[in-house]
Design a protein around this nucleic acid. Sequence first.
DNA 1: TAACTACACTTAACGCTGTTAAGTGAAAAA
DNA 2: TTTTTCACTTAACAGCGTTAAGTGTAGTTA
Lengths: 204, 204
Amino acid sequence: MGVKERRDREKENLRQDILDAASELFAKEGYANVSMRKIADKIEYSPTTIYLYFKDKIDLLNQICEETFGKLIETVSMIEAKGSDEPINCLQKGMRAYIEFGLKYPNHYEVTLITPIMDFLGKELHPYEGSSGQKAFEYIVRQVTGSMEKGQIEKGDVAAISQTIWAAIHGVTALLISHKDFPFVDKDVLIDKVISTTIKGLQT
Amino acid sequence: MGVKERRDREKENLRQDILDAASELFAKEGYANVSMRKIADKIEYSPTTIYLYFKDKIDLLNQICEETFGKLIETVSMIEAKGSDEPINCLQKGMRAYIEFGLKYPNHYEVTLITPIMDFLGKELHPYEGSSGQKAFEYIVRQVTGSMEKGQIEKGDVAAISQTIWAAIHGVTALLISHKDFPFVDKDVLIDKVISTTIKGLQT
DNA sequence: TAACTACACTTAACGCTGTTAAGTGAAAAA
DNA sequence: TTTTTCACTTAACAGCGTTAAGTGTAGTTA
């Protein structure tokens, strides 16, 4: 009587096929340049089939991004899990991992963290609460707290400091992704400078 | 025989009307949510008339942004022109002016500096060369050079340091504009922290 | 004054877009 | 064997940016 089970499996397979096709297209051509019809063509189904699996285009995007950002969480979690490093070093390595992640998946980074996709009322369409983005930010908060307790950075408002760090790493990531025509200095030099300046600015 | 002159004047008036209408709509609803037909409705002309004055929608946007960013140049130029301040203070004030400008014109900031509007080949559609954006960046370079000469910040790669500063101020501006749902600390506290951390991180 | 020309502007249309409502056909259940 | 279920498709809607062709009026010329 495994009929339902088989059907569920088939549905899940198609769901994942759609996700994979969309992910590849979004990453290659950017969210705005990919139409539902293009995704449908790729998986050889009609465009409307996608709507049986995802609410709309933005829902498709959100689910892909959650999947992708899961990888960032994994990376930073590994830094932390080694347990051998001082919080200040975890923080530094986390900052680098964040930027490198953004540059590795520029289109995913773009759609989740750069491009503000708002509805007509100005409300964010991929909310922060419970997202992988939140988990990534919590990593920063944890390292800041730890560094502060060990006297490696100045004592102060943990939230404000964490957000300052986020601003720095988001700033450089976003600029490098969005302004390809700008004559940046060597990418690694710039990233190093951003990280070291921020850390130094926060030290006691 | 002022016929041609009058016609030129009328053309220029309509051009400015289009620019004003589009600017207001872009600022209020965001570039993506404003259609050529909406702009046309507002000025009570047919949509195609706009194409007699502007190449396409992105051209309209670029011209508006140049106009708006001219105001930022004016602001930072005034800081510099007073001549009484040390370069490090000019730099600090310039950073604040930049962020406040972005928050005052979030939609203009968004379309020019946050959202990367690329064509299908990934080339930027509003280029940097000769833009007001370039002039604004040159202001930073000037203050960094000045501060360095006076020993107010560490000696080093002027371009790398200038870009680090840009990353910091762009980062906080972009985050505040794009992630309205995020539980930021008080806006002014965060801005202060970003500026002070960056300056401190660069000091000797 | 009448015909002609220039040209600012409009109408109609093309090929896209995201999305929905209605319809189809095959497999499972009765 | 009939009925029901339901995954999927077809057709359509209303919108988009943009272009080609057409129109009407103001200015120029005869």
